[in-house]
Design a protein around this nucleic acid. Structure first.
Lengths: 110, 110
DNA sequence: AACCTTTATCGTAATATTGCAATATTAAAA
DNA sequence: TTTTAATATTGCAATATTACGATAAAGGTT
């Protein structure tokens, strides 16, 4: 096989997995960190920041975009990439939920 | 090609990516959620909770374990799996950092 | 127009992941 | 000791990901 059986899991589980998967590569973590670091969203030099060829970076950007972690607006002949806070909100919510679950458990095990 | 060029990225970037990748599959999200839901850590019925064959579940558990998201103690002839809070702490820290970065940016763009 | 810059897409090779049947391992139970 | 139950490992097929050279597309600049 090799294909994930997404249809057997809940929408929420697939959503979290998709976001996590998008963040599951150091280049994509680096891109997110860079977008946070630079002052403006008028980027266009992401390629120079990464130790990867331009087509590879473009591919990583597309994956981040399709997962909803970033958004890109065309700005003249370059593109302005930004972090999409909606996705981060979902992530944050999941971890808050995990945290709550752990607090509950503390009372009776491990 | 096909292999991630980890050596070109920082240790932190690789660490976050590894954790995120481990969570990047709905079955593994489901496992984490299940470990949070059940009352005790004396599990052993994770296989029955998932719509996947036993060897597949075992493999997912191993991946979560090697990423540091869960730990497993042998308990008689079954195994007691628990969430490893250390990994979650790293994750939480990363998102806090992202949050801070976004607050900074709010002042001047997008 | 001809040219440059920036980003995307295509094609392809190398490698990784997903999933499961078959089988092994381990320890408790009978 | 034989059996049973729980989990791991092996081997393999199907599919996905990663990376990049070559090339295309789109918008500026001269």
């Amino acid at each position: 096989m090799g294909a994930t059986k997404s249809e057997h899991f809940t929408e929420k589980q697939n959503q979290i997995a998709t976001l996590a998967k998008a963040l599951g590569h150091p280049a994509r973590v680096a891109i997110i960190q860079y977008l946070l670091k630079v002052d403006t969203c008028i980027c266009g030099d992401i390629v120079n920041e990464l130790p990867l060829a331009q087509p590879t970076v473009s591919q990583h950007l597309r994956e981040l975009k399709s997962a909803g972690l970033i958004k890109g607006n065309i700005e003249g002949n370059s593109i302005c990439y930004c972090i999409d806070e909606t996705a981060l909100e979902i992530f944050k919510q999941f971890f808050a939920h995990v945290e709550d679950g752990l607090d509950e458990k503390k009372k009776r095990c491990c």
